[in-house]
Amino acid sequence: MQPGTLSSFLKRGAIWAFIAAELVFFTVAGEFLSVSEKTFMDIDNMLLLFKQSAPIGIIAMGMTIIMVNGNIDLSVGAIYAISAIVLLDSLTWPVFAGLGDGVIPVAWGLALLSGVALGALNGLIVWKTGVDAFIVTLGSMLGYRGLVFMYNGEQPTSHLNWTLVDFAEAQWLGLHTSTWFLLGVTAAIWFLMNRTVHGRNAYAIGNNRSAAVNAGIRVGPHMMINFMIIGFLAALSAVVFYSESGSVNPNDGELYELWVITAVVLGGTKLTGGAGSIVSTFGGVLAIQLLRKGLTHIGADTETVNLVIGLILIAVLFLDRQLNVKGKEELKV
């Protein structure tokens, strides 16, 4: 066996072992504590879990590529809110009145375009100024959220288009529309990361930036593309969710960036960049959603849920550190 195989297997497998442990725990605990008649592993409950994972999960795929590249994006929650407003508001614009339901793809397109544009702005600033992405997106998080409030004050923006709602609530092969989007995005980003030049270079830049530069890789454009991708995905997440709900509050999407980062880090992606896997991020997203759902299932309130997730995040990262140390020692021998 090659050195490091064991520890990398443990690390890859860890998130799935964790998910399995959650399922067992909540199933057993649910028998005693749950007020609900249904078991936790009920099929409808699990399908719902996937659907509820979608908003965070879709963005988490973009965050994985951003973090592997060595950056971070804190503005995704604000981009999510802006895109939602663009979607719902543009459905009602008089210019598009003649289109009938033809307005739907137009509104989707506008919302996605907004996401891409805002992401591109982040990327451009990071590229051209050389300021750390954490600072840049911290600023744009505040700025973009400001735009949300400027648009409609404290008022929610609402519009229900029933064709859209039907589409968003549809199930195909048993899975909800948003689940399909999550799976599609996961597959697409997996291919991007593992099979394309862009993905390869993103890993290289995150792992050793100066070696990447010395190999003739242009760092800036790759970073910018990644910020456009995550902007697109934040908008896609909003489009999928608000097509169904039809109403967006100016506070919506707040703290999404932190949930997304939690899921990505739980999946084993390094904050320092250069390492991370889309499949594990998918695991991280499911693990968090399971935890939220499971704790609610056994009667815990929201505050408890957040406390537990916080503790688990720290415990997982500590374990990861121990495994890494082990892996390194294995190498030295």
Binding site: Y203, A204, N207, N208, S210, A211, N214
Partner: peptide
């Protein structure tokens, strides 16, 4: 190690 190789690749 610092400039020639991407050690994690």
């Amino acid at each position: 190690k610092g400039q020639g190789l991407v050690l994690g690749m």
